[in-house]
Amino acid sequence: MTEREPYRVQIKVRQYELDSLGHVNHAVYHQYAEVARTSLIEDAGGRNGELEKARLATVMLESRISFRRELRYGDVVDVTCEVKFGDGKTFRMDTNIYKADGTLSAEITSTLGIMDLDRRRLVAEPRARFEEAGVDTAMLGG
Rank of each mutant, 00 (worst) to 15 (best):
L40I: 01
E107N: 10
D101E: 12
T58S: 13
V79W: 12
T90R: 15
T95Q: 01
G49I: 02
D19I: 02
F130Q: 03
D94G: 02
R47D: 02
K12G: 06
R120P: 00
E82P: 00
L122K: 14
Y98Q: 00
L112T: 07
G22I: 09
S39V: 00
A57P: 02
E125C: 00
A54M: 03
R47T: 04
I97W: 01
D118R: 12
F67V: 00
L18Y: 12
L140G: 01
S66Y: 11
A106I: 01
D78H: 10
R119T: 03
S105P: 02
A128M: 04
L40E: 05
R64M: 07
I65A: 09
A27R: 08
Q15W: 13
N48C: 00
T90M: 12
D78R: 12
L51G: 06
A57V: 04
K99V: 02
G46T: 05
L40Q: 12
L18M: 15
L18T: 15
E62I: 01
A124E: 15
R121D: 04
F67S: 03
S20H: 08
V35N: 08
I65C: 10
N25D: 12
S66N: 15
A27F: 06
R14Q: 14
V28H: 15
C81Y: 09
T80A: 03
I65Y: 03
R69V: 06
G49K: 06
Q10P: 00
G134Q: 04
T38I: 10
P126V: 08
L61M: 02
M60F: 08
E3V: 09
R127S: 08
R37F: 03
R129N: 05
L40R: 07
M60L: 15
D116E: 05
I108A: 08
T137R: 01
A100N: 04
E3T: 11
S63W: 07
E132D: 13
R92D: 10
A138R: 12
L122G: 12
M139R: 15
A133Q: 08
A44E: 05
E70T: 14
D116H: 07
L117H: 06
T2F: 10
L21Q: 14
R8S: 09
D136S: 06
L40G: 03
M93E: 08
V35Q: 12
V24I: 10
T2H: 13
V135G: 11
S39T: 14
K84F: 13
D116G: 08
E107L: 06
T137P: 02
V83Y: 15
A124T: 09
E132V: 03
Q10H: 13
R4I: 08
D94M: 03
S20D: 06
M60V: 11
Y29K: 02
T137Q: 04
E52L: 09
Y32W: 13
G113C: 04
R14M: 07
A106R: 00
